[in-house]
Design a protein around this nucleic acid. Sequence first.
DNA 1: GTTGTAATTTACCAACAGGTTAATTAACCA
DNA 2: TGGTTAATTAACCTGTTGGTAAATTACAAC
Lengths: 114, 114
Amino acid sequence: MATDQLSLTFSALADPTRRAILTRLAFGETSVKELAQPFKMTLPAISKHLKVLERAGLVARGRDAQWRPCRLEAKPLEEVADWVEQYRRFWEERLDRLEDYLRELQAQEKNSDV
Amino acid sequence: MATDQLSLTFSALADPTRRAILTRLAFGETSVKELAQPFKMTLPAISKHLKVLERAGLVARGRDAQWRPCRLEAKPLEEVADWVEQYRRFWEERLDRLEDYLRELQAQEKNSDV
DNA sequence: GTTGTAATTTACCAACAGGTTAATTAACCA
DNA sequence: TGGTTAATTAACCTGTTGGTAAATTACAAC
C-alpha cells in the first residue's frame, strides 16, 4: 500500500468497522473492549483495526492500568476534506444544469398561462 | 473488501495513481493511453485502476472508434464530503482552544497596558 | 486483406488485508 | 502467591491488490 498520509487516511477509512469505531470515539475516549462490543468479531481483529487507525494518525491511545483508552484524532481528516472540496463544483454541476432546466420549465409554464 | 458505496469510494481514493487520474480528468475527458502517459507503469495496470474507479462510480467511459474516453463522475465524492464534515469540529477544536488562549493573552496585555 | 493503434483480457506473481485461535504480557485484586 | 481481566502478539489461512508479460479484441486506414 502507498504510505503517503492521504493514502493512509483514505485506506483507513475504507472499512466500515473502522469508520464505526471513529463514530463511537466521537462520543468520547473508551477502552478497546468497549469498542469491540458492537461487532461480531474477536478482540484481536479490533486490535488490528485500531493499529491501522493509529498508523493513519486517526486515533491515539493512553494507558490506564490494564486499559488502553483510545481517543479520536481528527486532524488527518482535514486533508481529506480539502482534497475532496476540489471536486465539489463537479458534483454540483449536474444539479446546476437541473436547476437551469427547471427554471426553463417554469418559464414555459408561465408562457402557457398567458 | 466491503462493498458499500462509501467503502468503495474511500478505497478507490486510497491510491495516489488513482487520485492523480481523477485530477487529470478534472481538466476534461481523455483516452486511456493519455491517462497512462505520466506514469511509469504498463497500460493494463492503468486499465485496472480505471476499472476500480469505474466500479466506485468515479469515472464513466464512452466509446469513440478504438478509444474509450474516460470522464470524471464526482457524485460519489459528495458522500465523502458529508461524512468527513461530521468531524470538522474535532480537528478545529485544538485551533479553537488556541484562539481562546490567544484571546486570553490579548486580554492580559490590555491589562498590563493600563 | 494487411498493418497499425487502442485497449482489454488472461495468466501469473508477490505482498497485503482481514479474519481466526492460541499463547503471552501486564496490571489489578484478594 | 494465584486468579481475573485487558489487550497484544504470534502463527496461520484465505481472498484481494497491484503489478507484469503475452495474447486477444476492435477499429481504422491503406
